[in-house]
Structure formats: structure tokens, C-alpha cells
Design a binder for these strands. Structure first.
Lengths: 222, 222
DNA sequence: CGGGATCCGTTACGATACTG
DNA sequence: CAGTATCGTAACGGATCCCG
């Protein structure tokens, strides 16, 4: 009796799980939403995944058409989402909305890098983006830089520095999480833990409103 | 080192997976969205889950506040979703939308019962419901009865017979799935494989339009 | 008969060590 | 840096048995 553990049912939910239900698979997709990544970047971001498992998962995801392997300069190999892989975004967002309802475990490990938070943030921003105009922001969290771009209602957040951002924002991980969890009031977070530099007038306020609206989606009041 | 395999990261996606990421867990939630169920109903619906695993998962889901155990008449025990458990609906829908993009496996097993399809259908109907007025339908698929109710834009689909439906619809599994997969044109499906009885005028046509709109969400064209 | 508990073989995962 | 190889452990799968 060989073969991997698959449900082999017609139901689209079990079909999804047959492709991304294995351990780590969804978290690999999650981190790749922050942009193409090296093997080692994924490994550190996933905080302790065994390298053989990462290899195995990447192969499976590639075979399923969700991920592709690219050769970049200097012999560097990059893993990137395919179009199909990018379609997992809404699903990951709903997963995040659901997971946010559970209290965090007592003994939490900090992720090896902050790629992990990019999809959650960008897909949350996506939901509220129609109310905002275009914008390119560089967000630095404890020295790790993201580029958040809002372009005609479509939002993307990459794990990279921006070339000519409208606004630069600097903060650190713990207070940002505390604000997202609702433990720290938004205005206090902004005043005490955020440094903002607007290179385009008013874009700083716009960015903060966007992020505030996005974080509100995770309020578990209703 | 003991303890179950949990990520223990703060990220809401991994937090969700720490609660519903184990094998079968999401499929149990899925089937419970069709209404309270007995142990044995779940067991047959999940087509071959080992009873010890079902026990273990139900305990975990109960401990996590997603499922509750009820004592019904004649000493019957029922498992039902809690409010928190019902919140998994949108997530399951996005999972279904994503899973629908993969071609079905060659050797598929038919599910032990049709509870499995209730959430997928009802959450799809939920998306298009604002365009429809109130309605109670009994849908019978190969003799298994569902009650679909649209009430002020809120949709529910239970694995039970309806008391006084506006319309009764009879069909069978294979053509219905073929229609949902886009392999069978909707009009041909309706004409050749659906029997409709309207107890309230026009409600038959309304039901079919609702279902047609809902199924269109799974078209993978875009 | 429904609702499990127990047992045991198999598979997947986790940790570490090693290599091109 | 990007993996491969090995091995102990935990989770799963299937069957059987038990109890109200």
C-alpha cells in the first residue's frame, strides 16, 4: 500500500488539501507571496523546517504548478509563485482572518524573517484599497524592508526595498503586532513606535489610514 | 520532545493551521456545516477515516472551541459547530475556489454521504444571494435531502428535509458535479437531469438561477 | 447498533550530519 | 549556499474489540 496520503475525493476542498494540505506547504506559499526567494531564505523564514522537507515540498508544489524554479544571476536559484500559485492569496487571507480569532500560544517563536507577514498585510490592504489612491511605500520593520504598492486598487507587498517611494515608514515588530492584535491602540502605536517620512505630500497620512483600515479587519468584535 | 506538531508562530495563518491543520480536521468542519451530525455519520461521510482519528480530532476541535458535543433524544450524541466553528465558512469557500482549479485525480472515491458538498454550495450561494429574494428549497440528490434557505441575503444549507419548501428539486450526483465542473452545459443539466416542483409560483426558476450563478463562481476562466 | 477504545504496521516528519 | 542522506520519533491507517 504505497502512495502519499491523499483524500482522493471530488470535493474541491479536499482537492485543495490534496495539493497544499501537507505540513509547511501553505507556509511556503505564504512566504513566496512576498516575492521570489532562495532556498535558504525560505528555510530561515520557516524557522526550523528540515531541509529535506523543504526540498520535498518545493518539488511537490512545482509539480502541481504552484511554484517555479528560476535561475538568476551568479548561479543563484530562486523559487517563485506561478500565476496559479498567486491565486492562493484570497485563501491565505481567509485563513489569516480565521487564525486571528485564536489566542496566540504561550510559547511563541519569532519567525526567522518577516516574509511571513507580507501576504497577510497585503491581502488585508487589498480589501480596503478601493478607498485609496495610488501609493508606493517603503515599510521597514526592524531593518527588514518591504515595498507596499497600491496601483489602481490592486495591492502588492514585496520583501524588497523600494526605488522611489512616496513615503517611508519605520517601526519594529512587537509593537506592530500588538497593534494588529488590538492590544495597543492604533494612535498610540503610531505616535510612539512609528517613524514616518513623506517624500510626497500627505502620503504619510494616507498610508497610516490604509494600514489602520486593514488592521481593523482583524478585530474579532463581530 | 513531546507535544503535537505545532508551528507556534505568531502569524495568524500558522495559528489557524495549528488548530485546523491536522489531517481530516478541515473536512470534519466542512461536514458539520451541513448541520449537527453523529459520530457514525461523520465517519461514513469521511469515507474511511479511522475511528480513533475521528475521536481525536473531535476532541481537539472541541477543546479549541470550534465544535461542541450535544446530548439529543434517545441517548444520541451529536456534534455541532459552535459560533466560532461557523466562522470557518468563508475560509472553506476560498479553499474550495482554489481546489476547483486543480483537475480531479484519476481514481476518485465517492463520498460516503453528501454532507460534504453542503458548505461549498451554500457559501457559493451566499456570494450571489444579494441578487435574490427569500426562498426555501428542498434539494434531493440521489435521495439525500438538503434544505437550502435564503433569508434576507443570508444563506444556509442543511442536510435535512424541509418542512414547507417553496420548491423541490430532484437530481443526481454525477450530472450535478459535471455541471459544476463545467463539463455539462447548465441548460442541458437542467433539462435532462433535474426534476423541479414549484409549490410557490416562479420559485423554481429563481432557484435554478441562484444555483447557476453560484456554480459560475467556480469557472476557472479568469 | 452507535460510539468509541486498543493495538500494531506503515508513512510522514524532525533533527542532525554530511556533501558538491 | 543548496541541497542529500540517515535515522529516531510521532502521526496516521486499518482492523479488531469493547461497552452501554
Amino acid at each position: 500500500m504505497a502512495g502519499p496520503r491523499r483524500y482522493k475525493l471530488l470535493c474541491p476542498i479536499s482537492r485543495a488539501l490534496d495539493h497544499i494540505g501537507d505540513r509547511w506547504a501553505l507556509l511556503i506559499l505564504r512566504d513566496l507571496h512576498a516575492g521570489p526567494a532562495r532556498f535558504s531564505e525560505l528555510q530561515t523564514g520557516l524557522a526550523g523546517i528540515a531541509p529535506n522537507l523543504l526540498t520535498e515540498r518545493l518539488q511537490q508544489l512545482t509539480a502541481d504548478g504552484l511554484v517555479e524554479k528560476r535561475q538568476a544571476d551568479h548561479g543563484v536559484t530562486l523559487y517563485a509563485l506561478t500565476d496559479l500559485g498567486r491565486r492562493s492569496r484570497d485563501m491565505l487571507f481567509e485563513l489569516a482572518m480565521f487564525g486571528g480569532r485564536f489566542p496566540p500560544d504561550e510559547d511563541i517563536r519569532r519567525p526567522g524573517n518577516l516574509r511571513t507577514i507580507a501576504v497577510t498585510l497585503s491581502s488585508a490592504c487589498q480589501r480596503v484599497a478601493p478607498r485609496y489612491s495610488n501609493l508606493v511605500a517603503q515599510i521597514e520593520v526592524d531593518g527588514e524592508a518591504f515595498t507596499l504598492s497600491v496601483d489602481n486598487g490592486s495591492v502588492e507587498m514585496l520583501y524588497a526595498t523600494a526605488t522611489s517611494p512616496d513615503v517611508t515608514m519605520r517601526t519594529s515588530y512587537e509593537p506592530m503586532i500588538a497593534a494588529a492584535e488590538g492590544e495597543l491602540p492604533m494612535n498610540e502605536f503610531v505616535e510612539r513606535h512609528v517613524e514616518l517620512i513623506a517624500h510626497t505630500p500627505r502620503k504619510d497620512a494616507e498610508l497610516m489610514q490604509l494600514l489602520g483600515d486593514a488592521m481593523q479587519l482583524f478585530d474579532t468584535e463581530t
